[in-house]
């Protein structure tokens, strides 16, 4: 394990909000090509640590390394510029805008030459072509129109667009924050398949989820977060779901399982 450079590594991260210590000298590590699930009880600080990785929160102490190099993010936009994408639980898409427009929100392509530089004209054809290509790659392209408003799609279809957007632009890794929480059983299944597809394309994923069956199905390793720090990392093939829940709630200590 020490031979590979982690895609992202956090060392001794600390974040305090007044008297509350949300992250208490926590470590974090994502390896190339893996799905790392992050689980923890409510308030364990799992969203805080993930926010500190994607730039939404700036840690007070500690070191963050991307591919072995120290980085310091002041905003999620900086993290995104480095190729880190996030898929949110609440489907961060603009309902009235089209699929193509949503995929390119905040990073539109302008036409080359005079009209692009001087009149700032968007290259809609190119953006539509790219969006169509990325959706087809993930098998989502039985869509009626790439210019269809996102609000006319079902929850699963919307999450499909969000995953496709992340997969299209992520060069480092993707963070998925409860991507199936808002979805029904069948739609969750489709999104899980999408997550595996994305891993198969070589993009590592950090998956935050409360859903143990989903975590155990797709994760390569499970990071268990408790009381603001990493309690342990377990292998889903070696540990049962009930053990994982016992660990994250404190009913069991990590040395009880051979991880």
């Amino acid at each position: 394990m020490s031979a590979v450079t982690p895609v992202v590594e956090g060392r001794g991260l600390v974040k305090r909000y007044g008297h509350v210590t949300a992250i208490d000298h926590a470590d974090f590590e994502l390896l190339p090509g893996e799905i790392l699930a992050v689980i923890g009880d409510n308030g364990a600080g799992k969203s805080s640590i993930v926010k500190s990785i994607c730039g939404a929160v700036t840690p007070d102490e500690g070191e963050l390394l991307i591919e072995g190099k120290p980085v310091h993010f002041n905003s999620p936009i900086e993290a995104r510029d480095m190729g880190i994408e996030i898929v949110y639980q609440n489907l961060a898409l603009s309902p009235a805008l089209s699929i193509a427009e949503n995929m390119f929100a905040g990073r539109e392509i302008r036409k080359p030459g005079f009209v692009g530089n001087w009149f700032r004209m968007l290259d809609k054809k190119e953006m539509e072509r790219f969006a169509r290509e990325k959706l087809s790659e993930l098998g989502l392209m039985t869509v009626q129109s790439i210019n269809q408003a996102v609000e006319t799609l079902s929850g699963g279809q919307r999450q499909g667009v969000a995953v496709a957007r992340a997969a299209a632009f992520a060069t480092k890794f993707i963070i998925m924050d409860e991507p199936t929480a808002a979805l029904g059983v069948k739609e969750s299944r489709r999104v899980l398949e999408l997550i595996k597809d994305v891993r198969a394309r070589g993009i590592p994923i950090i998956l935050i989820s409360h859903n143990m069956p989903h975590v155990f199905e797709v994760a390569d390793r499970i990071h268990i977060h408790r009381l603001g720090k990493r309690l342990c990392i377990v292998d889903p093939k070696q540990v049962t779901m009930s053990d994982a829940v016992a660990l994250m709630t404190g009913a069991m200590q990590p040395d009880a399982v051979a991880a």
Binding site: P76, I77, R80, I86, Y88, N90, L91, A92, L93, S94, P95, A96, L97, E101, N102, A105, G106, R107, E108, R110, F119, R120, M121, L122
Partner: peptide, 27 residues
């Protein structure tokens, strides 16, 4: 022209549509 053919124009619509989603998209 500005609202339909430029990135700024699309951002205006995105902000009005769902400001949180727009923010999360990096606008």
């Amino acid at each position: 022209y500005v609202l339909n053919k430029t990135a700024w124009g699309r951002h205006v619509y995105a902000v009005g549509d769902d400001i949180e989603a727009a923010e999360l998209s990096g606008i």
